[in-house]
Amino acid sequence: MLTMIGKRLMFAIPSLIGVVIVTFLLTRALPGDPAAYFAGPAATKEAVEQIRKKLGLDKPLIEQFFRYTNDLAHGDFGNSLTTGQPVAAEIRNRLPASAELTLLGLIVSVVIAIPLGVLAATRPGSWLDHLCRVTTTAGVSLPVFFTGLVLVYVFYFRLGWSPAPLGRLDVFTSAPPTVTGFYLIDTLIARDLEAFRSALSQLILPATTLAIFSLAPIARMTRASMLAVLASEFVRTARASGLSPTTVIVTYAFRNAMLPVITTLSMVFSFLLGANVLVEKVFAWPGIGSYAVEALISSDFAPVQGFVLTMAVMYVLLNLVIDILYGVIDPRVRLEG
């Protein structure tokens, strides 16, 4: 098993090298001149040149690239110009914020979508099936920022139930000492219930927004895969043998229907992690998606490269975990390169 994992990780190296090269070239190919941008509105030509020199952008591309890879090898992702902070530190601070939100959103989504999908599959054509179809279609066709804004409008602005959409904590609550970076866990470790409550109440609306959006792929995939499995021969055999419907569905059918669902889950998770920019914007969430987009808008190379690289590593690891999970769920699947 361990050698397999090692082998898989080895295979990931070429793709990571590819990612490093491609992001470097792509960010350089972006229109816009960071030196002109950061020299400020009142800069003269000389001022722009001075800034260019300071940023090392006057050097030939190949030299810039070697300097970049050398820094990378030393764990230095460079400095972001928009926020003025080292990229590695920023990603370290922001990734848990995004991950906590995405995970919670995904858990909420799974808790609703999988039972809904299973139920819809066991009674195709019934009102439950239609309900499943309607909710998932509605969820996926509403843009996330719209759902987010509606939730803010109703639960914060109109009803006043939810706290102000001001990021991860209430303004007057201080952040817990960082252990995992997940506030829900860190506040419990610090035994700060007030902060835990604040963190949780800040999370509910954005997590719900994400859940509504990710409901569709999970529920639809569960339903489709369950339908296929329920129509297969071994289920018929199980039914014919007089097993109770619960045993048939939960023990036999569901386990076999899990594989595509797990794949979808991993896709949805990695997609949401990087792509929930809009939710982050709506809820002033200090996450990684909004960070990358802001950097992109200002031609800030280092964070964009750091972001893409981090996401690439996450994908590789996630795929590995999924593959291992396959093996656990279905012993016939072997972990091979």
């Binding site: 804004l149 914060y156 602005f157 102000a164 001001l166 990021g167 002033a284």
Partner: peptide, 17 residues
């Protein structure tokens, strides 16, 4: 605090937060 969404900034003001 940085609140990127203009609509939310207005909501925060109108709610008195």
């Amino acid at each position: 605090r940085m609140v990127p969404q203009a609509g939310n900034r207005r909501a925060l003001l109108e709610r008195g937060d």
